[in-house]
Design a protein around this nucleic acid. Structure first.
Lengths: 257, 257
DNA sequence: CGAAATATTGACAATGATCAACTCTTGTGG
DNA sequence: CCACAAGAGTTGATCATTGTCAATATTTCG
């Protein structure tokens, strides 16, 4: 029964319509699932990528380490996400992927995928869509790191994670499990551990969130979204392929800067 | 004579081999060039992208503005670069593109391109390659913003720009024209204008660079590359499609952090 | 020539980093 | 089942990188 990656299929379907044939092809390329422990490398910087993985359960992240040990996490990989396809295209990856928790993953051979894409072009579209989503999330992170302060970054990450988890049915009300150390949060947010802690604590004290290690709940959505400048509709649009023309807020450069 | 975008063709060729047919197809889609003034929007956030542009001469940037006026520049668009193809795929863009100087551009219709890609799949590969390059540069920027200080960021940007310009023949020795205001630099680097100025001045005083507005020269490549942790071979590998297995430095998380 | 944009510099403020101590969990071996 | 070690979280004190404000060049351009 549970040899089908339900969350993955769900996320794929949410991103755009998939034919029965596409669904079948998707399942066909997947190898039987395995469970790997935390801190397992699924891809390492500079090493040829031969396999992709569907992460059906557990968390991971894409990251890079600087010479002196500083780490930057590019983004988190959540249940239902996958990796490998977009990293495969030409050359060796510029970053690594590791698991952060115990994960249930479905490996797949990239050469198999590539050849199947010939017969079933829809497959390529499916992976392409999520590649685009990743790109949008990367840009969002750049804005975070470049132009938002700690408070805004944290607020935004919480809302982003909530949304992504909600998509695959992993939210309970406005709460969700957050199996990340504050160190991981810090490395994603470009902050120090200590400052992440303080910021979280402060949001807690202000009643905007209810956080305790391992779990978090959004208490005051409105205020939090205001701080984060978080636009749900924009986020959804990025996640799915359904373009909504003109719905994006028309920003202007009013130059308060 | 100059109705052929030489720098563009050069960059495309540098990224991977292109057949005569591919070259022809590329040229076929392009409309006659126009010159646009600085601060011309080539793409605006949320508005459907119908045309792409080859920027044969002049500089532009991809950016986004926050409600309060803060601006984040994602990256710069240099002579020989193009835009539109990767932004076209499904939905409206999450960011804008504007020119920063007077630019000579070759517009092209995206619908035309899409249909031609059917006949000439090589076209798709060509654009795909540069999409990948953009992705790598975005990740690099994330590392910059998240984990490098002002000095490192500035050093790195200088070296990156030098390399990209060198590719299209726009460097003179170790010098190149830098038609960016310090405000633009600041918005790309996630710093304040004042701090960019100071950092530049300091690098100047230390004899690492020779900067005056409008123009910059690298004086002490070694030291600058050391500060920036800039790996030329990695950069080249990202720019071209020629994968070099195992050549990437094997970073370790030694946790000085 | 003069207005506007850009660059430069000093003084001061503040966000966030670092250091350090201490607590709380969690997992492991005796 | 307890003791203890290791990892993770918390908090205070202090430091420092970077931002903000403001005043003053300097350049660009109509």
């Amino acid at each position: 029964m549970s040899d089908i990656p339900l969350r993955f299929m769900r996320r794929v379907a949410a991103a755009g319509s998939v034919s029965a044939k596409g669904r079948a092809a998707l399942l066909e390329i997947l190898s039987p699932p395995t469970t790997v422990s935390p801190a397992t490398d699924l891809m390492v910087v500079g090493e040829k990528v031969t396999h992709g993985y569907v992460v059906e359960d557990g968390w991971g992240c894409r990251y890079r380490i600087l010479r002196d040990g500083r780490r930057q996490i590019f983004n988190f990989i959540l249940p239902g996400d996958h990796l490998g396809r977009s990293d495969h295209f030409l050359g060796n990856p510029d970053h690594s992927v590791t698991t952060l928790t115990r994960c249930r993953i479905y490996p797949f051979s990239l050469s198999t995928l590539m050849s199947l894409e010939g017969e079933c072009p829809e497959l390529r579209d499916i992976f392409h869509r999520s590649g685009r989503r990743d790109l949008l999330m990367l840009r969002e992170r750049i804005v975070d790191l470049g132009r938002r302060n700690a408070r805004e970054r944290v607020a935004r990450l919480i809302l982003e994670l909530y949304h992504r988890l909600h998509y695959v049915g992993l939210s309970k009300g406005l709460a969700f499990d957050l199996p990340l150390t504050q160190e991981a949060l810090a490395d994603a947010l470009g902050l120090s551990i200590v400052h992440v802690n303080r910021t979280l604590r402060r949001l807690n004290a202000e009643g905007l969130i209810d956080y305790c290690p391992g779990r978090i709940a959004v208490q005051d959505w409105e205020t939090l979204a205001g701080i984060a400048e978080f636009d749900v509709s924009a986020f959804d649009r990025a996640a799915s392929s359904r373009a909504v023309s003109g719905a994006w807020p028309a920003h202007r450069y009013d130059s308060a800067a």
